[in-house]
Nucleic acid binder design. Structure first.
Length: 722
DNA sequence: GTCGCATGACACCTTACATC
DNA sequence: GATGTAAGGTGTCATGCGAC
């Protein structure tokens, strides 16, 4: 890799600056990754991502006030932390002085981040100061930080996403010198808690507390780049592009080699990895009895641990139960699981005893299921000793919620069972998670982002993916398959926009969502609506201005002239004489006509309509054949249009049913029938007939969409208008 | 009138934190 | 450690709207 990289950002050529990629801090981070045996390829890709991200941040060496907002999009459990740590190192080497990390809204997440950041920058304290709002309260003030800066030390402050913590960090930037120090702000899990949850509130307060605090932080720091880091960017992309947290740029971070996520677990092989809990089973929450599926999950957990040990893999092995968000449920599940594990431990201890047979049946059944799934296994007899060992050395059931934090106890074991709710969601990594039992789901509509973040079973599991399993309900299995399709399409859209150089804010906000029981994100943060196109869209308003009419007509004439040889005259009657230009590509007409046409600010047709349509077609990977039809192009038309340009009559002409009449006519709505699989753009040249002084013809559009297309488009959603 | 859907009000759960 | 408060998230229910 070259040492100095001249960066030419993809979308904004005013902002060219040079990035040095082998400075002191970057090398520290890189060395630690090497020590921790990251594959070379992964290290290079992490550094490349950091360069790409930093290149879109403001140049810290220019003395001006500027700020930008970006989003770094990764995959759940794909190691986004390494990426933003590298970014901080690179930013320091290139002139940034301070890094503020909003490290999650729970203490366990903050702690996880603090530990990771400290481990990644094993540098001289005289070069870098790492502080966190929980432990260094007395140092986080303008005076002390200014002194550190004077001593030429870089600063990282990691804070909890809570009002007081953020305000504490904000306060130091009241100091003028600090306020102009180039600062990079990392918002970890940036779709959670930071965005405005009061956007649609009827209260007087239109800003949620954390959002308000973050905006204050942003305003205080005169030169900064604010980077949201998340695997579920739906909310960030769906909020108003005028919102200060709406990203100006986005960077996709492909997961490294060996990552197993949505496509492995919930794509074509979902039946192998996801086991559906039968609906007629007794509930885990019943006062007595334990569902068969729980025994199955436990047995597959111990068998799979035995398999890994047999293969020489003695790493951590974990089982997670996520039954519900309620603490009372966790307690009852812990009790049930503990009773089973205790009894299995007793049986495993005396495996020659007849009592062992009942345990053995469970284990053999789990073994057979793995065999049936095509997992390469030795004989059960060869595995048995390893399996029983796993049972004997298994931890107590770790309750993981606000009452009890199991993380410390789990370090004492290699084989761990966890039970939790909200504390085992987003952000948290459970080492060696192989089996998950999850039945938590809203009774009605679930959010895609929240649901996806519960997938703690994703991660770098290539070495033992064959034995990983998820036990869940049919509904949750379906949810994840829909999310898999949604996520693929989302990445595709952003990648394509990147290749085409489309600025992030201009990417069509169209997303795939094929499930009626899923919405993309919380409705208090951002709303969506179905991509619902009618068969016909008849333009109901124009700019009533002769110059505009001439310009719009010129666009149409140019298309006509460029395709002279393809024009076909279609005569239905004496007065119904149309001109057809068949078989154009939608994308071409979009570029040459709809992008340039001048639309009124009111009315039902504007560039946004065609942008949405185009984004929808891109998702469908289609560029539909489109015909242009100049309707009654010689005689033209007159309609009742008011002075504001609003069409008061019906634009489309009805049929003349008299078959014997020389004026028999099928009607404008039937014109697409013979070529019903194509889009038809009808051009109606219309003059106002009730107001004087407007003696010119204005082109109005009628857009016909084939039902196949409108149906296919209805599986997508876009930003809500309200 | 029925159905599906969006929306808002409200209650409850979970978490963090301040106070005693 | 117990208690109360603030904040964010989830779930349920009533209501209203438009399509049929």
């Amino acid at each position: 890799m070259s040492d100095v990289i001249k960066v030419i950002p993809k979308t904004d050529n005013k902002n060219v600056w040079t990035i040095k990629s082998d400075g002191y801090y970057s090398n520290c981070v890189k060395n630690v990754m090497e020590e921790e045996d990251y594959p070379d390829e992964s290290i290079n890709s992490i550094i490349q991502n950091a360069i790409e991200t930093l290149s879109q941040c403001p140049d810290p060496n220019i003395n001006d006030e500027s700020s930008k907002t970006g989003i770094v999009i990764g995959k759940v459990q794909s190691g986004k932390t390494s990426n933003f740590i590298s970014l901080i190192g690179l930013a320091f080497d290139n002139g940034y002085q301070i890094a503020v990390v909003l490290g999650g809204n729970k203490n366990n997440l903050l702690e996880q981040n603090v530990t990771r950041i400290k481990n990644s920058f094993r540098v001289d304290a005289m070069k870098l100061v790492i502080l966190d709002t929980n432990k260094n309260d007395d140092v986080i003030n303008a005076n002390t930080i200014s002194e550190f800066i004077k001593q030429n030390r870089k600063i990282i402050i990691i804070g909890l996403k809570h009002q007081k913590h953020i305000d504490k960090m904000s306060d130091i930037f009241n100091n003028y010198k600090l306020s102009i120090a180039p600062t990079i702000i990392i918002d970890d899990e940036g779709d959670q808690a930071t965005l405005n949850t009061k956007k649609y509130s009827k209260d007087k307060k239109k800003m949620s507390t954390i959002y308000e605090s973050v905006l204050k932080l942003k305003t205080r720091i005169k030169k900064h780049c604010f980077i949201s880091v998340t695997a579920t960017p739906q909310a960030n992309i769906l909020i108003d592009t005028l919102d200060l947290l709406s990203p100006d740029f986005g960077v996709l971070v492909d997961p490294g080699i060996g990552y197993c996520g949505l496509s492995e677990f919930h794509g074509d092989n979902q039946d192998k990895y996801v086991k559906v809990i039968p609906e007629d089973e007794i509930s885990l929450f019943d006062s007595c009895g334990i569902p068969i599926s729980v025994y199955e999950a436990l047995a597959s957990f111990f068998v799979s641990n035995g398999v890994r040990k047999y293969r020489g893999d003695f790493g951590n092995h974990a089982l997670l139960f996520h039954p519900s968000q309620r603490k009372v449920d966790h307690a009852s599940v812990v009790e049930k699981l503990q009773s089973v594990v205790d009894s299995w431990k007793n049986k495993a201890d005396c495996y020659e005893d007849i009592a062992y047979q009942s345990l053995k049946r469970h284990l053999v059944s789990a073994y057979d299921k793995y065999k049936n799934d095509g997992v390469n296994l030795p004989s059960f007899v060869d595995l048995e000793e390893f399996i029983l060992d796993s049972i004997k050395f298994c931890s107590k059931i770790h309750l993981t919620n606000s009452d009890t934090d199991a993380s410390k106890n789990s370090e004492l074991y290699k084989t761990n069972i966890f039970v939790g709710g909200n504390m085992v969601e987003r952000g948290l990594t459970i080492k060696g998670l192989a089996i998950t039992y999850i039945i938590r789901r809203a009774k009605t509509t679930s959010n895609v982002d929240n649901t996806e973040q519960r997938a703690r079973w994703f991660g770098y599991k290539e070495a033992y993916i064959d034995i990983c399993r998820v036990y869940t309900t049919q509904q949750i299995k379906d949810d994840f398959h829909h999310i898999f399709e949604h996520d693929e399409a989302l990445w595709d859209t952003i990648k394509k926009a990147e290749q085409q150089g489309t600025p992030f804010k201009e990417i069509g906000r169209v997303f795939k969502n094929n499930s009626r029981l899923l919405r993309l994100t919380r409705s208090n943060v951002a709303r969506t609506q179905k991509l619902d196109f009618d068969q016909f869209k008849s333009q109901n308003s124009v700019i009533l201005d002769e110059k505009v009419a001439i310009e719009n007509n010129r666009l149409l004439e140019k298309i006509k002239n460029d395709n002279k040889e393809k024009l076909i005259n279609i005569r239905y009657s004496r007065t119904q004489n149309h001109l057809l230009l068949p078989n154009l590509k939608f994308s071409i007409i979009k570029k040459d006509l709809f992008n340039l046409y001048k639309y009124p600010t009111t009315g039902n047709l504007n560039k946004g309509f065609f942008d949405l349509l185009e984004a929808g077609f891109q998702h469908l990977k289609k560029d539909p054949i489109t015909d242009i039809l100049w309707v009654r192009y010689e005689t033209k038309e007159e309609r009742n249009i008011d002075e504001s340009g609003r069409m008061l009559s019906t634009l489309m002409q009805g049929h003349n049913p008299n078959v014997n009449s020389p004026d028999f006519y099928i009607g404008d709505r039937k014109l697409p029938d013979e070529r019903a699989d194509n889009i038809q753009v009808q051009v109606h040249l219309v003059k106002p007939n009730k107001i004087v002084g407007y003696d010119f013809y204005l082109p109005f559009f009628v857009i016909y969409l084939p039902s196949k297309l409108t149906e296919a488009l209805s599986s997508f959603v876009t930003k809500g208008e309200k």
